[in-house]
């Protein structure tokens, strides 16, 4: 078991003929992901690393039974691409694209919800179930199969923590990137719920950052979880009102501060690491050994 994806997931790559699409198709194949088709309007009949390319998602789904899609489509066209995938019946859409307009993200999430589809991202590094499949852009070599679920807002920070866990002998069941933007398809709670149900996951690491109230909402949910949660939050030193890269990383009106998040998470029963390298020890502690 794992959450969201496993070795049976049949993946479609939208924007497969671009540089990023090509590179990561190859990386995902090397990891063992079943890439069944690609879509790139006007390129039907071509192949990318042995993967057949179609003009439309509809056709790719018809011919190859794809049930998940990953988007490498430039921001101005990403909303259209996500709608196309969801409309064709795809139930898991992973939107890697950065800088998708906020209003487009609201439309994408609304449409996904109305069709019972799961939208991961936008601006996510994707989802990986080590040993099974990955739909994303994370480096292949840092993960190991194991009992720890990770959910993170930020890509590289989650790599840092996943690698530290792997080095400490703590493998991962699934690692999910929520996406760094303000409006994203999945909340921490959506993912925590799935980890709670997943028999393979024995502990969860939550990697958050300042801004917004997503961590505070997660803290409420953690109270009712049977599995232990370790959290790390970036941005303790970020000055109020300054945006630091992620649209989400902004503090406004005293909400979403580092202190308020730590307080909420600790009240919810999570252990909070003050530095990323402290995470593996805390996970060992909560796993009881």
């Amino acid at each position: 078991m794992a959450i969201l994806i496993d070795e049976k997931t049949r993946v479609l790559v939208q924007g497969i003929t671009g540089n990023q699409g090509r590179f990561h198709t190859q990386q995902m194949q090397a990891f063992g992901t079943r890439i069944v088709a690609g879509v790139s309007p006007g390129r039907e009949g071509q192949e990318v690393h042995g993967v057949p390319v179609y003009d439309t998602v509809e056709k790719a789904v018809e011919r190859h039974g794809a049930n998940a899609a990953i988007l490498f489509v430039p921001a101005p066209f990403a909303c259209d691409a996500a709608f196309e995938a969801i409309d064709a019946g795809i139930k898991l859409v992973v939107a890697i694209t950065e800088h998708i307009p906020l209003h487009d993200a609201m439309k994408m999430t609304a449409f996904a919800r109305s069709r019972g589809a799961t939208l991961v991202g936008p601006n996510t590094f994707g989802v990986i179930s080590p040993g099974k499949s990955k739909i994303g852009i994370m480096p292949n070599h840092i993960y190991k199969p194991g009992p720890v679920g990770i959910v993170a807002r930020s890509g590289t920070l989650s790599y840092e923590i996943a690698a530290a866990l792997s080095n400490a002998g703590l493998g991962q069941s699934t690692v999910v990137g929520m996406g760094g933007d303000r409006v994203v398809g999945l909340s921490f709670i959506d993912i925590l719920e799935q980890f709670e149900q997943d028999p393979e996951t024995r502990a969860v690491v939550l990697v958050g950052e300042i801004g917004g109230t997503a961590e505070e909402e997660a803290a409420e949910f953690i109270k009712g979880m049977s599995k232990p949660v370790v959290a790390y939050l970036a941005g303790k030193q970020a000055p109020p009102g300054k945006r630091m890269g992620h649209a989400g990383a902004i503090i406004e009106r005293g909400r979403g501060t580092y202190e308020s998040k730590v307080k909420a998470l600790e009240a919810g029963g999570a252990k909070v690491a003050s530095m990323p390298w402290e995470v593996p020890d805390l996970v060992k502690q909560v796993l009881g050994g």
Binding site: T156, S158, K236, H246
Partner: peptide
């Protein structure tokens, strides 16, 4: 490289008593 890890780096400096002059992701 990456907004999250850049913020974490700034936090790590502060933990050792240093102060960052900038955020460059």
């Amino acid at each position: 490289n990456g907004a999250g890890i850049t913020m974490a780096t700034i936090d790590a400096l502060a933990a050792y008593g240093g102060r960052a002059m900038n955020f460059l992701d």
